[in-house]
Design a protein around this nucleic acid. Structure first.
Length: 462
RNA sequence: GGCGACAUCGCCAAGUGGUAAGGCAGAGGUCUGCAAAAUCUCCAUCCCCGGUUCGAAUCCGGGUGUCGCCUCCA
């Protein structure tokens, strides 16, 4: 198992802190809005990471935080003139609904920042105590100068950063790169008591507190979007070094960005799509296919055509399963036969190589080809179907296979269609092509497609 | 200015020294009253130049182009 580690900029063999166990953390949403497809990428990807580790036998603990106190949330609350809790309540629910709609199982532990304020205060207090941080007028800042390791994750040196960076003047800070740990509250803002007065925690401390509390001071994997490398993750790491004197985690994983039609997604360009809106038009598995068909570290371009293609591709998985009537034997046990073991190997090898999901998906197509091939041995086709579903589920596909494959047509309409097929066959016998075609076309308009096969006419619901 | 990523068939996308996976689209055959479906088959030498090597899409150098981070944006 190899993982690309942002810290070292190379693929490294994965060695867990504790044998047989994986402790992973990924940065969750700030709940002030519906999340967009860019946010969806890490949510989906790290869920697959978790699935895969479980699949190959690890005992996984996956923690993902919810940031429910933050400037953006306060701004939103002020805009709408409601308490910030109303904002977070609404968007936490939306977050949970949306990831579920995308087929994301979710984290084992999902702590909220406001649930651990006491712990965050204690953590910041410790930094002040050891002089890794300092308080000024009710604010607390982390002193980056004190930490020689600062910049090690993002590969920057403080000297380099100073040169051309556009950092707002903040005369309270000793170094412009000192970051806020605690922020004094203004009148009317949410606040908590602290040794430095009433205020609220900055963003960077909560993740350290929540990850270490649930996973230990050094855990295995910390994930998030590539943009979080600096400053967020750099700052998390800095705090962990300062207080625990050891690295926060052994492997830093970062997913690439999503562009829209070749341009950066941004609110000013108004070119972002919420997942919620995308799922109104496209099947969730098409979205999943879109993400997983490309390596997670690559930048990925979103455009309207790409999901159409993805949707067709996913449909072919189901077409193959329909051909063998998968549901009729889905519950039967099976073994990976000698003829199929190479596909499982290919899948595992691909995923072991820094989660190469593109090849993993190709394996699914390899299997779909066998499943759908009428000339193949039926037992082989069934076994291939089982394996295809087993592997597909690791990637999050086929979660709702019963619904997808079941024909919800009721008995009456089924017999009506068969009746019309009989009429059409009579018309064909009479060479009444006009009537025959009319029946076919009219049914097509009702989303019932007639197909003339060697064995007679069959129909398909579109 | 500093740091970094990427450039592979019409589109999406694997590949990290041994002679280009897969998907979508497309072409042809079979089947068919027509059509669709199904099925079989076909479909790239890897941005440019130079180097290393028996051998490079893969390594090195130089171009060109695209993009990202350095603004509490995943």
């Amino acid at each position: 198992m190899k993982i690309y580690n942002t810290m070292t900029r190379k693929k490294e063999e994965f060695v867990p802190v504790e044998a047989g166990k994986v402790k992973m953390y990924s940065c969750g949403p700030t709940v002030y809005n519906y999340f967009h497809i860019g946010n969806a990428r890490p949510f989906l990807f790290f869920d697959v990471v978790k699935n895969y580790f479980r699949y190959i036998g690890y005992d996984v603990t996956y923690v993902q935080n919810i940031t429910d106190i933050d400037d953006k949330i306060i701004n939103k609350a002020n805009e709408e003139g409601i308490p910030f809790e109303k904002v977070t309540e609404k968007y936490i629910k939306a977050f949970l609904d949306d990831i579920k709609a995308l087929g994301i199982v979710g984290a084992d532990i999902q702590p909220k920042a406001t649930d651990v304020i006491e712990e965050i205060i204690a953590f910041i207090d410790k930094m002040v105590e050891i002089e890794a941080a300092y308080a000024v007028n009710g604010d607390v800042y982390f002193a980056v100068d004190k930490l020689p390791q600062y910049g090690s994750l993002s590969g920057r040196k403080l000297e380099d950063m100073q040169a051309g960076a556009r950092i707002q003047e903040n005369t309270q800070k000793r170094n412009p790169y000192d970051f806020t740990l605690w922020k004094a509250s203004k009148p009317g803002e949410p606040k908590w008591d602290s040794p430095w007065g009433e205020g609220r925690p900055g963003w960077h401390s909560e993740c350290v507190v929540m990850s270490c509390a649930n996973l230990g001071e050094t855990f295995d994997i910390h994930g998030g979007g590539i943009d979080l490398v600096f400053p967020h993750h750099e700052n998390e790491l800095a705090q962990a070094y300062a207080v625990n004197k050891k690295p926060l985690c052994n492997y830093w994983m970062h997913n690439g960005f999503i562009n829209i039609e070749g341009e950066k997604m941004s609110k000013s360009l108004n070119n972002f799509f919420t997942l919620r809106d995308v799922l109104k038009k496209y099947d969730s598995e098409a979205v999943r296919f879109f993400f997983l068909s490309k390596h997670y570290r690559s930048p990925i371009d979103y455009n309207t055509g790409i999901l159409d293609e993805s949707e067709k591709a996913v449909k072919n998985f189901y077409k193959a399963l329909e051909k063998v009537d998968y549901l009729s034997f889905a519950d039967e046990s099976y073994e990976v036969s000698d003829a199929l073991v190479k596909f499982k190997d290919k899948f595992v090898k691909a995923m072991d190589d820094d989660f190469n999901s593109a090849i993993a998906i190709a394996t699914l197509f390899d299997l779909a080809k066998i499943v759908g091939k009428a000339s193949e041995d039926m037992q082989l086709r069934k076994d291939a179907a089982h394996l295809m579903v087993e592997l597909g589920r690791v990637l999050g596909f086929f979660a709702d296979i019963e619904t997808k494959l079941s024909n919800d047509m009721n008995q009456i309409s089924e017999s009506l269609i068969n009746l019309l097929i009989t009429y059409r066959n009579d018309a064909k016998k009479d060479k009444n092509w006009v009537l025959a075609d009319r029946i076919r076309d009219d049914l097509l308009a009702l989303k019932v497609q007639l197909l003339d096969t060697k064995d007679g006419t069959v129909y398909k619901l579109l």
